[in-house]
Simulated scan of single mutants.
Amino acid sequence: MIGYVTIGVKDMEKAKAFYTALLEDLGAKVIFDMDRIAMIGKGMDEPMLSVCIPYNEEDPSPGNGNMIAINPGSKELVDKLYHKAIELGGTCDGEPGQRIPDMFYGAYFRDPDGNKVAFYQFG
């Protein structure tokens, strides 16, 4: 149902480098790239992450309560990608761990622009 999610960034090259390096283990790459917007994902037929310089050219601002959640397919990948995000310049917003016993495992970080992202695994 979701085609893509867009987040505002200050530096397109930095954002593309961060997200392509972070998500390459999931098969993601830059699919579509124009001056102020780029789509990152596996293909146009699957959900994508879009990074962009805001249309009004004002500074981007992460929404309070907004978050992108990505299911990489296992708890091990949640851990791996969380640590990779931190190594790439993200900041911790909740270390990897079991949030709901036997149901939800998650890890949270903020990208260099302050956007909140979660990696999670159900079950």
Score class of each variant (00 low, 15 high):
97 G>M: 08
89 G>D: 08
91 T>P: 06
95 E>I: 08
10 K>I: 14
36 R>I: 08
95 E>G: 07
12 M>A: 13
39 M>D: 03
32 F>K: 02
11 D>H: 02
104 F>Y: 11
64 N>S: 11
87 E>H: 07
47 P>F: 13
35 D>L: 13
12 M>H: 10
62 P>D: 03
33 D>S: 09
50 S>I: 03
117 V>P: 00
7 I>P: 00
62 P>L: 02
64 N>E: 14
32 F>V: 01
32 F>T: 05
117 V>C: 10
123 G>M: 09
85 A>E: 03
83 H>G: 06
17 A>Y: 06
112 P>K: 10
65 G>Y: 09
10 K>A: 15
74 S>P: 06
123 G>C: 15
13 E>G: 12
81 L>N: 01
48 M>E: 08
18 F>V: 14
55 Y>V: 10
14 K>S: 15
32 F>M: 03
104 F>T: 02
101 P>C: 09
88 L>H: 09
76 E>H: 07
79 D>P: 08
94 G>P: 09
15 A>K: 00
21 A>I: 12
75 K>N: 07
31 I>N: 00
87 E>G: 05
35 D>C: 04
83 H>F: 08
20 T>W: 10
17 A>M: 12
4 Y>H: 15
123 G>A: 12
52 C>W: 02
108 Y>V: 14
17 A>K: 12
69 A>W: 10
57 E>N: 04
56 N>R: 11
67 M>A: 13
39 M>N: 01
82 Y>F: 14
109 F>V: 02
79 D>W: 01
99 R>H: 13
80 K>Q: 08
78 V>Q: 00
112 P>R: 08
55 Y>Q: 07
32 F>C: 04
18 F>R: 07
24 E>Y: 04
103 M>Q: 14
55 Y>S: 05
4 Y>T: 11
101 P>A: 10
118 A>E: 09
121 Q>Y: 10
108 Y>R: 14
75 K>I: 03
115 N>E: 08
82 Y>G: 00
63 G>Q: 05
50 S>A: 15
58 E>H: 04
20 T>C: 13
85 A>C: 04
12 M>Q: 09
41 G>K: 01
87 E>A: 11
14 K>D: 13
49 L>C: 02
72 P>M: 15
1 M>K: 09
10 K>E: 15
53 I>V: 13
120 Y>V: 13
84 K>G: 06
38 A>L: 07
27 G>H: 10
55 Y>K: 06
21 A>E: 14
67 M>L: 15
91 T>F: 07
46 E>C: 12
100 I>P: 01
2 I>C: 11
38 A>F: 04
95 E>N: 09
22 L>A: 09
68 I>N: 03
51 V>L: 04
5 V>S: 02
70 I>R: 00
116 K>V: 15
46 E>P: 01
31 I>E: 01
76 E>A: 12
66 N>G: 02
36 R>E: 03
9 V>W: 03
24 E>K: 06
43 G>A: 12
121 Q>F: 08
24 E>F: 05
9 V>T: 09
33 D>K: 03
106 G>C: 11
56 N>M: 12
111 D>A: 13
104 F>W: 11
